[in-house]
Design a protein around this nucleic acid. Structure first.
Length: 563
RNA sequence: UACCCCGUGGUGUAAUGGUAACACAGCUGGUUUUGGUCCAGCCAUUCAAGGUUCGAGUCCUUGCGGGGUAGCCA
C-alpha cells in the first residue's frame, strides 16, 4: 500500500492527462510511439522524447512503437535509420513494433481520394511562391486559391495524374479545403501532397508525390492505434489540423499532447548545426565524443543509465527552460562513482625517486577497487623506487592549504607509503626534473604499524611498470552558455573551444592493459575515463575522459582561498 | 501589431483550493589513505494588480514578460 502511494507522488502533466483519459474511458490503454525522421543522428534531445514515450508505455502496461517519419526522401537515408535503431537500443529501450510512415503511402493515397470525394480536398495549380502569397500573413487573412472550386471529378482526375507523373515537380499540389481566413495559419488550406521526383530509401521510385507531415502523422498514429501522440511544443498549432483530418476521415483519433523540448546550456543540438560541425570537420564525426549525439555520448563514456536518470530528473513541462549542462555531468559522475573501478594514472609526470628504497626491490600493494563498494574487490599494484607523480602535486613553495608534496614535507602515496621530500633536482632552466624522497617503511598502506598521519594523499605509478596510454582529454565544445544565440556578426562557429580536445601520453598502472573498449574506470583524483574503440590502433590503449571529478581544491585556488 | 502556449529560489521540477517540497549549483562545517564519496546545516512567501473564497502558487479578469506559428521541411 505504501509502495502504491509512493508511485502516486508527483506526476507530470502528461501522466495526469493520461490518467484522466483512462479514467474517463476516452482510451482503454496507453500506446505511444517515437517518430523520428531518419535525416540525422539522434541527440540528447531525442533521449528525452524516447524516455518519455517508452517510459509512459512501460509504466502503464502499454506499448511503444518506433516509427520512422520518412515522408521527405530528399533528406532521408538508411544510414540514419540504422543508427537510430542502434541508439534507442543502447539507451535501453525496445520497441513493440517497427513501422515506417512510407508503409502507409497506399492507405494515405486512398484517404486523400476520399477527402477529394467529400469535397474536403482539391488540386491546386499555384506555385509554392503563389501559395505563400495567397496564404496571407500572421495578421491578415489569406485569400482563396482560384482552383479551390474545382469539381470532385476534375480533382480526382488531376490527383490521379499527379500520381501518374503527368506534371512537373511543384506544378500542382493537393490541399485540404478548410479556411483561408483562419487565425491559425495551419488551417489555411494546408498542402497534403507535393510532386517530388526523388528516390525514397524504401519505396524507391514508386512514388512521385509525397504526403506532407501534417497529412501523414496523425493518420499513421491512427493506423497504429496510438492513444497518446506526444510531440514538442512547436506542433501545438498543428493540433487543430491533426484533429480535423482524423475527424473528416472518421478514423481512430489519438490525442496529441505537446511538451517543451530539451535545451541544454553550452550545447548546439539541431541537425543543421551538427551537420555543419561534421561536414566541415570541426569534429571527427557524428560520434565524436564532444558531440551531443547519443553515439557521441556513448563513445564519450556516458552510461545509458545516467542519461535516462537525467531525463527523468529534468522532468516534463510546457515551459521552455534551459538545463545547466552541469546537471548532465553530475548525473554521469553519480553513476560512475558507484560502478567505475578506481585506477591510478599519471597524466603529467615528473620523476620521483625513493633514495632509501632497496635496490631492485619490487613491493606489491593492494588497493581497493572502490572504497564505497566493498564488493568491488581489490587489485595489486607493483611499486618500486622509481616513481612518476603528477607535476601539479609537487611545489617547492606552496600556500598554507596545499596538502600535497612540498620540499621538506610529507605525503602519503595512495595505497603505498608515506614519503618525505628532502631534495629536488633541476635542469639548467630551473625546472624540477626529479624529486628526491625517502619512504617510511613503517607506514605501508593497510599495515598499520605506525601512528603516523599526513594531510595529503597523492597518486603515482611505478616508472618501470607503467603502461603507456593515449589519453584524450575532452572538454566542452563551445566556450559560451548559448552558442545558439551569437552576438552580432558572429556564428556559433566563433564560439568553438579551441581546447576541447587535448591528446597526451599518460602512464597508468599495469592492469589498465586488461581493460577493453567501453570499460569505464576512475583515474583517482583525476576523473572518469573510458577505453575508446581506437585502442590498439597505435599499440596503446586509448582512454577518453568522460568527465572530471569535482575539484574543490581547484575552486579554492581559483578564488584565492588557498592561503 | 493575429492566433496559440507558458511565467514557482541561481537552474529545473513538484505541491490536484489548506499555508511552498525535491534535485542540481552555491555557501558553512564534519568524516575520509581520492581536496572524490559520504554526513549535517544554510539558501523562495510563487511576474504584477484586482477579484472569488474562511482560505489562492493553484480559480477568474486585466496588465507585463517570454516562446511558437506565415516550407510543396519535420
Amino acid at each position: 500500500m505504501s509502495e502504491e502511494n509512493e508511485k502516486r507522488e508527483s506526476r507530470n502533466f502528461i501522466e495526469q492527462a493520461i490518467e484522466a483519459d483512462l479514467a474517463s474511458g476516452r482510451f482503454k490503454s496507453v500506446q505511444t510511439r517515437f517518430p523520428p525522421e531518419p535525416n540525422g543522428y539522434l541527440h540528447i534531445g531525442h533521449a528525452k522524447s524516447i524516455c518519455l514515450n517508452f517510459g509512459l508505455a512501460q509504466n502503464n502496461n502499454g506499448t511503444c512503437n518506433l516509427r520512422f517519419d520518412d515522408t521527405n526522401p530528399a533528406k532521408e537515408e538508411v544510414e540514419y535509420v540504422e543508427s537510430i535503431m542502434e541508439d534507442i537500443r543502447w539507451l535501453g529501450f525496445e520497441w513493440d513494433s517497427l513501422h515506417f510512415a512510407s508503409d502507409y503511402f497506399d492507405q494515405l493515397y486512398e484517404w486523400a481520394e476520399k477527402l477529394i470525394q467529400s469535397g474536403d480536398a482539391y488540386v491546386c495549380d499555384l506555385s509554392s511562391d503563389e501559395t505563400r502569397e495567397y496564404r496571407g500573413t500572421l495578421t491578415e487573412p489569406g485569400k482563396n486559391s482560384p482552383f479551390r472550386e474545382r469539381s470532385v471529378q476534375e480533382n480526382l482526375d488531376l490527383f490521379r495524374r499527379m500520381r501518374a507523373g503527368d506534371f512537373e515537380d511543384g506544378a500542382k499540389s493537393l490541399r485540404a479545403k478548410i479556411d483561408m481566413a483562419s487565425p491559425n495559419i495551419n488551417m489555411r488550406d494546408p498542402v497534403m501532397y507535393r510532386i517530388l521526383r526523388a528516390t525514397h530509401h524504401r519505396t524507391g521510385d514508386k512514388w512521385c508525390i509525397y504526403p506532407t507531415y501534417d497529412w501523414t502523422h496523425g493518420q499513421s498514429d491512427s493506423i497504429e492505434e496510438i492513444s497518446f501522440s506526444i510531440c514538442t511544443l512547436e506542433f501545438e498549432n498543428h493540433r487543430p489540423l491533426y484533429d480535423w483530418f482524423c475527424d473528416k476521415l472518421g478514423i481512430h483519433h489519438p490525442r496529441q499532447i505537446e511538451f517543451a523540448k530539451l535545451k541544454l546550456s553550452t550545447l548546439m543540438i539541431g541537425k543543421r548545426y551538427m551537420l555543419k560541425l561534421v561536414k566541415e570537420g570541426y569534429v571527427s564525426g557524428w560520434d565524436d565524443p564532444r558531440m551531443p549525439t547519443l553515439s557521441g555520448y556513448r563513445r564519450r563514456g556516458y552510461t545509458p543509465e545516467s542519461i535516462r536518470k537525467f531525463c527523468a530528473d529534468v522532468g516534463v513541462a510546457k515551459f521552455n527552460s534551459t538545463i545547466d549542462i552541469i546537471r548532465l555531468e553530475s548525473t554521469v559522475r553519480e553513476h560512475l562513482n558507484r560502478v567505475a573501478p578506481r585506477r591510478m594514472a599519471v597524466l603529467d609526470p615528473v620523476k620521483l625517486t625513493l633514495t632509501n628504497w632497496p635496490e631492485g626491490h619490487v613491493e606489491i600493494s593492494e588497493a581497493v577497487n572502490n572504497p564505497g563498494e566493498p564488493t568491488a574487490g581489490k587489485r595489486q599494484i607493483p611499486m618500486s623506487g622509481n616513481l612518476l607523480i603528477e607535476r601539479e602535486d609537487f611545489r617547492e613553495e606552496a600556500p598554507r592549504k596545499f596538502f600535497r608534496l612540498k620540499k621538506g614535507g610529507a605525503v602519503r602515496l595512495r595505497a603505498g607509503f608515506i614519503i618525505d621530500c628532502h631534495d629536488v633536482v633541476k635542469d639548467d632552466d630551473g625546472n624540477v626534473i626529479e624529486i628526491l624522497c625517502t619512504y617510511d617503511p613503517e607506514t605501508k598502506s593497510g599495515a598499520n604499524t605506525s601512528e603516523r598521519k599526513v594531510k595529503g594523499t597523492i597518486h603515482w605509478v611505478s616508472a618501470e611498470h607503467a603502461e603507456e596510454l593515449e589519453v584524450r582529454l575532452y572538454d566542452r565544445l563551445f566556450t559560451c552558455e548559448n552558442p545558439g544565440s551569437p552576438e552580432e556578426g558572429k556564428t556559433f562557429i566563433d564560439y568553438l573551444n579551441s581546447d576541447s580536445l587535448r591528446v597526451i601520453t599518460g602512464h597508468g598502472e599495469p592492469c589498465l592493459r586488461d581493460h577493453e573498449a567501453g570499460d569505464r574506470v576512475q583515474f583517482e583524483r583525476l576523473g572518469y575515463f573510458v577505453v575508446d574503440k581506437d585502442s590498439e590502433r597505435n599499440g596503446k590503449r586509448v582512454f577518453n575522459r568522460v568527465v572530471t571529478l569535482r575539484d574543490t581544491w581547484g575552486k579554492m585556488e581559483a578564488k584565492g582561498k588557498a592561503n
